[in-house]
Design a protein around this nucleic acid. Structure first.
Lengths: 340, 340
DNA sequence: GTGAAAGCGCTAACAG
DNA sequence: CTGTTAGCGCTTTCAC
């Protein structure tokens, strides 16, 4: 049951009538306004003001076939990464005169939720789509409309679509080398979940870096990005008592780990060094301040938008690009040389 | 320069042609489909599938005068409160078949940014508007279109518009009483910025609660919600050495405070008790776990949507409502009786 | 420099 | 149960 077309705003026709010109002329004034005499323009502008004219977007979109809107598919954006990337996207979109429409899939944990969200979005008025973290998605379970520009970040869809990703490998390598340089050899890892592409990339880079240094990597502890998993695994790590340093897949996990360590009477960094990943706002204010790898979320958001718009303008789909933006190791106070 | 109407999707006319029926019939099938014979419907559905028909939203909106979209005005939604409220909004909107379009004003710190954002939004295709935290805004600096339903949360606009707010007073009172019950008398407060309505409400409730208990409230320390301000003020509080407990206006601030306290060799909660506000995800995993007041952000988001849609459906603006949702004190381990 | 006409895709209203 | 007609507000021709 569609809502009644309540309180209609003034239309071009109304303005035209009041100004005593054709609708055509009003339209011309409304868009840049080339080829209109100063006098006519003045009358039109005056009429617009009086009537409080606002162009009707639906009509514009219907006519031009473009909505000037980008769809954003994400989940759990109360998390730093998602939230900041989104912030970057919205920011960049605005700069280009585009609006962002968000669809969350948090509530629906079952995989079909994603598909539903995607199709809902395609039914929505969007010109292009940005997908952030579609972790539970396999490339073909996500049916997107043919021809719609799609750009993804940090997900299993990388490879399928044009993507923007942080340089996980570089970031991880820097972090692990930092620990190695400090003299650590028993460098453990709390990973993200197995079905996450970036989690896998980080775990892999951690392993490779140790191997390259001639250190046998221990088995990684599998977490799920949450502080809770960091805490639980942290208790087991403390119990096992083998690690002198732990590289965590993200900062939340590191926070949980640190709490577990503290509860067991282990000091950070004197007894155990800890490194996180992301550099969330609070990282600098944990006690002690967390050494971590900063991801350029804002920048990723900007790139994402740049690429969708490029696709939109280009018409033709350029080969699947893959933009890699660098990470940065931020050394704070949770890392120190091992004891003895 | 409008983009070319690229890759047109199948329209109702196309489907009608293929199915050998009128456009009208297709439309009927497309919407619920009452009064269509099973046979005809089957043919239409078949044709829709073959053509991959998707209704054109712009046309629908133009026709019906409604976009089924809610605009969301916010800033800094990498913060927990904003992010979670937004999540609740999107969630509830989806349940009602509405889409959410977001406008951020983070980048533009100057007050005019808000107005620009609002007007941009009203030019957008939205049926109603939800404003989250318009702290820098005064009631009349925000010009919104007449007749558009607006619902606000936690801002100075409360009073001007229909609003949904957390019960700051109850939450604060519970927190301060908890400290009082523990035996504290020197209960300090790190507030939010002066231009924030909820910050003021919390500071005031803190003062009133102390007064009611016959305790003279010290001067509040004015923070700005950030962990950094908690840290800096925390150093001064530690230096002054007077407080046995600190009630922080939010959790970030509490994190900063705790770090400052630790750096000065003060233990939490043995030397100083700390209470936060919000219950962000990490609160449970600070070391030690943070006692705090949980705000029902998701719920606020839901209420916000409920109210906008009610306004939308009602047509007439019901008197400015004001929905208050309760907070909850979560006692963890940063609070304990003061030392002798 | 200005106006007239036509149509984007959809649906409400009215036949039949 | 189905088809025809008309028009939402805008902009792209094409005339003048």
């Amino acid at each position: 049951m569609p809502l009644p077309p309540s309180r209609r705003a003034a239309s071009i026709a109304d303005v035209a009538r009041l100004a005593g010109v054709s609708a055509q002329t009003v339209s011309r004034v409304s868009n840049g306004g080339a080829r209109v005499s100063a006098d006519t323009r003045a009358r039109v502008v005056e009429a617009m003001d009086r009537l409080g004219y606002m162009p009707n977007h639906a009509a514009r979109a219907l006519r031009s076939g473009a909505f000037r809107t980008i769809g954003l598919l994400a989940h759990r954006f109360e998390r730093t990464g998602e939230a900041q990337t989104m912030s970057g996207v919205i920011d960049a979109a605005r700069a280009e005169g585009y609006t962002v429409t968000v669809v969350d899939v948090t509530a629906t944990e079952d995989p079909s939720g994603w598909e539903a969200a995607a199709s809902r979005l395609t039914q929505q008025a969007v010109d292009g789509l940005i997908v952030i973290r579609a972790e539970h998605e396999t490339p073909d379970s996500l049916t997107l409309p043919r021809g719609m520009p799609v750009v993804v970040s940090d997900s299993r869809l990388v490879g399928q679509y044009t993507a923007v990703v942080a340089d996980q490998i570089e970031g991880t390598t820097d972090a692990v080398r930092h620990l190695l340089d400090l003299g650590h050899r028993a460098i453990h890892h709390i990973s993200g979940p197995d079905d996450s592409e970036p989690a896998l990339a980080r775990a892999d880079a951690w392993r490779q870096t140790l191997l390259a240094a001639g250190v046998a990597p221990p088995t990684a502890w599998t977490g799920d990005w949450s502080a809770r998993s960091g805490y639980e695994l942290g208790r087991r790590i403390a119990e096992q008592g083998e690690a002198t340093a732990v590289f965590c897949a993200n900062d939340e996990t590191a926070f949980g780990l640190i709490r577990a360590l503290h509860e067991r009477g282990l000091r950070v960094p004197q007894d155990v060094s800890v490194v996180g990943f992301d550099d969330i706002g609070l990282a600098e204010y944990s006690s002690p301040p967390l050494t971590t790898v900063r991801q350029p979320f804002q920048r990723i958001g900007h790139e994402l938008v740049r690429l969708v718009l490029a696709r939109l303008a280009g018409g033709e789909a350029p080969a699947r690009e893959r933009v890699v933006v660098p990470c940065e190791l931020i050394v704070r106070e949770t890392t120190a040389p091992p004891r003895s």
